[in-house]
Each structure stands twice: as structure tokens, then as C-alpha cells.
Computed example of a mutant assay.
Amino acid sequence: MKRIKMGCTTLSIPAMALGIMRMNQKSVPEAQVAIQAAYDAGINFIDSADIYGGGKSEEIFGQAFSQMQIKREEMFIQSKTGIVPGKRYDFSKEHILHSVDEILERMQLDYLDSLVLHRPDALMDPEEVAEAFDQLQAAGKVRFFGVSNFDTAQFKLLQSCLSQRLMFNQLQFSLKHTGMIDFGMHMNMVDKPSVDRDSQFLDYARLHKVTVQAWSPFQYGMFEGTFIDNDDFPKLNQELQKLADKYEVGKNAIAAAWILRHPANIQMLVGSMNPQHIRDSAKGAKIRLTRQEWYDLYLAAGNYLP
């Protein structure tokens, strides 16, 4: 498994993480199979959130992991908080502290390696968040911190009040969600791809050593479904298959290799609970697409260049 540096640290993490959003749909033995498949492929990074499956995903993970032979210190375990059932966000100190305690209980852990704030809260008080982070770190409950779906200004605002460096920003990125790179190539144009919807965060992350975590790497839309083997995307799947045959892997591996080919050292979140899909996706970390292959996939996905 390809390894990358985490944020501004010298800590090495895998270029892929296992997202457990769908683990609530699995039995404990099935969850163990998925975790083991990821671990055997070099993916020793877990990404969760307190709202996944209404907390059930973390409960299943906790039961599964506690019965496995993998040592806790061999895994990097991350969870997210901030989205509250009832369709609102809450970055209050009280909510963050309470949520972490519940996460640790569900996952049967003494600490999280990382806590990520899950989508921006319009009522965020950066100083209050800072108090929560300081208290969690001092208590040994959280080692590192990050955010999800923050634009550059939101990221800078929160960072300005923290004593810790934010390590991560989770952003949607895939062959069918390319906004972060479209506008740069359409600079000085007036077409739709020239619109900057991500406040140039990818460039900011490279300048300030923030690890971008790409979510939904095989999805189109937000949660519309996968583009892999989808008849609605014939050109893309034809190109994926062409390269899959060349590199003797599956299409998932090629779609993953496309993301990891970007020089920003992006970490990709694999959300599948299918052991075969996990293993195939992991093979993408060993493939370095040529520039032409990368652009051929970009164009086959329906994008165009000025």
C-alpha cells in the first residue's frame, strides 16, 4: 500500500482508508471480514462518523474489532461529529465532548486517532471549538483533528483559534466529481467548469500541508450510485476496462489510481464492505497512470478541456 505523510507531520498513513458508513448493514463476522481484507491490503486507517447507521456502524465495528487479533496501535481510527439527527449541525463544546464519549463507547476504544468536524456549522464559534479540542487532547481522548467539506475561509477561520494543526479536510472527489480541478484548467473562461465551487482548497492544502480525504470515490452525484459498470456511463466504463485489462486489475483499482495520481497526496476513502471490492481498490495504490491515461479517463468521464 502506498503511504503518504499525514498533514504537516512525519507520520505515515496509507493512501486509502476504509469508510464504515455501511457497516450497520453487516453482521459482526461480516464486518470482521471487511476489516481484515482492508488490513491485509495495507489499509490500517478507519473512517467513521457518529451518524453512520444511527450509531450502529460504530457499534458493529466495536464488537468486530474487539474480537480480532489486530492490535489497537496498529490501526488509525477516525470518526466525525457535528451532524445532528433532525437536520441541523452542532459544533458546540458540549455536543463535541458528549459525542466523542459516545463514539468511544460504541467503538470500544480508549481514544480516537482523529476527530473530524462533519460539514460546516453556520453557528460555529471557533473559540468554543478550540476549547473542546484542547480538553479532548488533554484528556487523551483524541490525538489529531480535522474537518469535512470546509471551504478555504472556513478552514482558515477555525485554524486561527486552534492550538492544534488541522490535519484533514474531507471533500468529494472522483472521476464524476471533478470540480476541484476543473476550474483551474478553465481559468479565464466563462463556461460552467470555470466556476470555482471549492475556493481553491486543493491548492491551499498543498501549500499548507493539509491532507485531503476524498469521499465517494466511485460515486456520481452525491449519493446517486456508482459509475462503475453503470450503463449510463459507457465511455467511462470502456476506458476503465481498457486500463484494467492493461494493468490486470478491476475497474475500481483504475478509478482509485486516477485519484491517487494527483500530486496533492490525496487519501482516498473506500466505503465498500465487499472484501473483493476492497482488495481490488487497494491495487490502485500500486498503479501510476501515465499523464495521457489520466487525461483520457478525465475526458471519458464527460469532462472537456478548453
Score class of each variant (00 low, 15 high):
D110H: 05
D196K: 00
T226V: 10
L202P: 00
G271P: 06
L243W: 11
E59C: 04
R143N: 06
G225C: 13
S57W: 02
L166A: 05
K156Y: 05
R72E: 03
S194V: 09
C8L: 09
V195S: 08
R197L: 09
L97Q: 07
V33H: 02
L243I: 15
I35R: 01
R119T: 11
Q36G: 00
Q238H: 12
D113E: 11
N237T: 05
S92Q: 03
G62N: 13
I51G: 04
R3S: 12
L171G: 01
K209R: 08
V84A: 11
D125Q: 15
S114H: 09
R22I: 10
S272M: 10
Q25V: 04
I181Q: 01
K93L: 06
P217L: 06
L112T: 01
W258D: 08
I287C: 06
M6P: 00
K156W: 03
F76T: 00
N149I: 06
L243G: 03
K242W: 11
A17L: 05
T9A: 06
N252S: 08
M189G: 04
E248D: 15
G140S: 00
P126D: 06
S99V: 05
L136T: 07
Q267S: 15
A300C: 14
G86D: 13
E105G: 10
S199K: 07
W294Q: 11
S66D: 12
Y295C: 13
E30M: 09
M180I: 12
G284H: 08
P263K: 06
M23V: 09
Y39N: 08
A264H: 03
D101K: 11
K141W: 12
F61S: 03
S163L: 06
V142R: 00
Y304R: 11
E293T: 07
C161W: 03
Y220L: 01
A264F: 04
G53I: 05
K251N: 15
D151C: 09
G19P: 12
R197I: 10
D40G: 02
P193I: 01
M16V: 10
E59Y: 09
T226Q: 14
K251L: 14
G140H: 02
Q159M: 08
L207F: 03
D203Y: 13
D196H: 02
N24Y: 15
I4L: 10
Q292H: 13
R288S: 15
R88D: 12
L166G: 01
A38K: 00
L305A: 05
H95E: 06
T152M: 01
S174C: 13
P193W: 00
H208D: 08
F65M: 10
L97G: 04
S66I: 11
T81S: 13
A132C: 12
D280H: 01
M180F: 04
M1S: 11
S48H: 09
F145A: 00
G140W: 01
S160I: 08
L104I: 13
E74M: 07
D47T: 07
Y52L: 08
Q108K: 15
L240H: 07
A153R: 14
M6I: 10
R261T: 05
K235F: 10
E131N: 14
L297N: 09
Q36C: 00
